[in-house]
Simulated assay, not measured.
Amino acid sequence: MSPSISSSTPAAAPSEGVSAPERGRAPLLFSLFALYIIWGSTYLAIRFALEGGFPPLRMAGVRYGLAGAVLYAVLRLRGAPHPSARQWLGGGVLGLLLLVLGNGSVVVAQQWVSSGLVALAVGSMPLWAALFGGLFGQWPGRSERWGLVLGFCGLGLLNVGGSFGGNPWAAFALLLGPVSWAFGSVWSRRLPQAPGFMSSATQMLVASGLFLAASAVKGEHLAHLPTPRALVAFGYLVTFGSLVAFSAYGYLLRNARPSVAMSYAYVNPVVAVLLGVALAGEAMSPVGLLAMGAILGAVVLITRARG
């Protein structure tokens, strides 16, 4: 989520027998795998954690607190400098937009909506990113405009078809989440950020404090000890969902075209729907399938145009 690492950073010594393009391609491919597959599976992990006894806001706060603390400690041990006050502020703004409002809305919505439908609604994020891009001088072209029309028709089908179970809070959360995440992603390059993965660490640590404060205000508490499945799901979210996948998203925002970083949006819903059907007995209505086709088609149009 931060600007590219300064050119004053010493270059790594070339590995014998491995070309520079190959070395540069490997972290890119791994980051895409993390976003496509790992991030797509976190929706089901969130559902298992909530069903097993974790309060939603407290779970998110502890999740990002643990992941952020581990990442921060490792980076400091490897010699990374302590972020400045401006970098903490920039990381805090992105932590609020991406994690508290963006991911927090996902966690809240999954109390009432299946993991596959939540992933599908969140997959609309590039639609909003295309709109926000206009605020920074990059207005949608013809192909993107058609994609916007198609995508918002798909979102309308999700609401008209009753896919959100008639719950206005779920519908509001699944509107707020993608909008906030898109705005934060577009704005990320214009905010002061710590270099490299330290940016992700500052975002997660600030977001953790905000989540835990909101949990305390709401009065959340553990009614009983989480089930073993919930604990495994929570560990998966901390390790793979936060440390690996969220850091990979930050890497792509810094080192790849925006269309590449946003491309996870048309893979995650498919992964989440398939896992929900296979492992949690979720089902997608015909209207939901039609909406999925419209939204995914729109995202493909937009990301290919921006490429």
Rank of each mutant, 00 (worst) to 15 (best):
S6C: 14
A11Q: 15
A12Y: 14
G24Q: 15
R25C: 01
A26Q: 09
L29T: 11
Y36G: 03
I37V: 15
I38T: 05
G40T: 13
G40K: 05
S41W: 08
L44P: 02
F48A: 10
L50H: 11
L57R: 03
M59F: 08
G65M: 06
L71Y: 00
Y72Q: 03
R76Y: 09
L77Y: 02
G79I: 04
A80W: 10
A80C: 12
L94M: 12
V100T: 06
V100P: 10
V106Y: 02
V106A: 11
S114N: 12
G116W: 07
L117N: 09
V122L: 12
G123E: 00
L131S: 07
F136I: 11
V149D: 07
L150V: 14
G154N: 06
G161M: 00
G161R: 03
G162V: 09
G165Y: 03
A170E: 06
L174D: 07
V179D: 10
S180L: 04
S185R: 10
R190T: 05
A194I: 02
S200V: 13
Q203I: 11
M204C: 02
V206Q: 00
A207R: 02
A207N: 08
A207W: 11
E220D: 12
L225C: 12
R229Q: 15
A233V: 01
F234E: 01
Y236E: 07
V238L: 05
S242E: 10
A245F: 10
Y249M: 15
Y251Q: 01
R254P: 09
A265N: 12
V271C: 08
V271N: 05
V271S: 09
V273P: 07
G276L: 09
G276A: 01
V277F: 04
L279S: 11
A283V: 12
P286T: 04
G288D: 12
L296E: 03
A298P: 11
V299R: 10
L301D: 04
R304K: 12
R306A: 14
